[in-house]
Design a protein around this nucleic acid. Sequence first.
DNA 1: AGCTTATGTCAGTCTTGTTGACATTCCAAG
DNA 2: CTTGGAATGTCAACAAGACTGACATAAGCT
Lengths: 174, 174
Amino acid sequence: MGDIMADGRTAQTFGSENLLFLTDEQLRQGIEAMFFAYRGFTADPDRILSELAYGRAHHRAIHFINRAPGTTVNNLLAILGVTKQSLNRVLRTLISDGLVESRVGTIDKRERHLFLTEQGQNLESSLSDAQRARMRTAFRDAGPVAVAGFKQVLEAMMDADMRRTHIQLRDSTT
Amino acid sequence: MGDIMADGRTAQTFGSENLLFLTDEQLRQGIEAMFFAYRGFTADPDRILSELAYGRAHHRAIHFINRAPGTTVNNLLAILGVTKQSLNRVLRTLISDGLVESRVGTIDKRERHLFLTEQGQNLESSLSDAQRARMRTAFRDAGPVAVAGFKQVLEAMMDADMRRTHIQLRDSTT
DNA sequence: AGCTTATGTCAGTCTTGTTGACATTCCAAG
DNA sequence: CTTGGAATGTCAACAAGACTGACATAAGCT
């Protein structure tokens, strides 16, 4: 359809042998690699979470509250890309379980600023440790050049607003 | 915890400046990059699917049936990593909607071999086109070296059995 | 003949997402 | 000062897609 040639190469392939890595087959392999890798990426924290009756949504909230302590609900909403009702259900359980603290804003009292309690930080650490251990092994096995390429491709794959959020988080902690 | 040093570097960091990309901060950035990129990765097909009352589960089934036509239900189960009840629900709708055909095996009549109908192939194409378009742009922007690194890290991140499945699929179509 | 395998199906549960409606609180503009 | 809108929270209902457990059927294997 459209730009697909009969032999399965894209139009860009012609005129430059450097672009042979853009065959449909190469792209499909990239797609499958993302699928299988994401499974591995989430497997370790998922195991820990399932024992605590929490899910991935709780992990994501905990991760980004840890990353940007004092963030508002609205800000977290934008990062996570879910509805406030969805996030609220997760936050409610985390707050009532004593993992997250919600403080009314001093400047704007409508806003709630979110922080991890000590207990929340402990869970964050154990989830993060598991995920980082896998990432560390993968990075070490692949080497620095591969890691640079990995990040480059991932950033190019994001939506523009997510790329902005990602870069902002990245640079704020470097 | 455990191997985390006070300054946030991992134990491996010491003794080799080449391994500075393994700081906890670098690993965290990798984790977030995966999260944001995966959102972009699924965004385009998700839009198409939502108009057809299908979800990601249908997409995954269609993708791998297209990739390995004639595959059995059991085989697909292993690739997708879900329960047969979960997969069956998806397959039932796809078969009754005329996108997938299920043929009783000739050698082993217990097995069902799965194929995309012409209609199924059409949907696969439009989903795949959308996803490949994004992947193609990302690959082109990042360049061949980055793409090689990207694939290398993703493979290192997979569980061993998923890596086997991935490599098997990759080599069977090259 | 009996055990195992492959598949399908029914019933129930859980997480996580959705929409819609409505209340509260507060800032800011008229 | 009042009113409109923004930020937040809550309730209710619903759907997708994962899960477990149980059971049925057919076919292959020993």
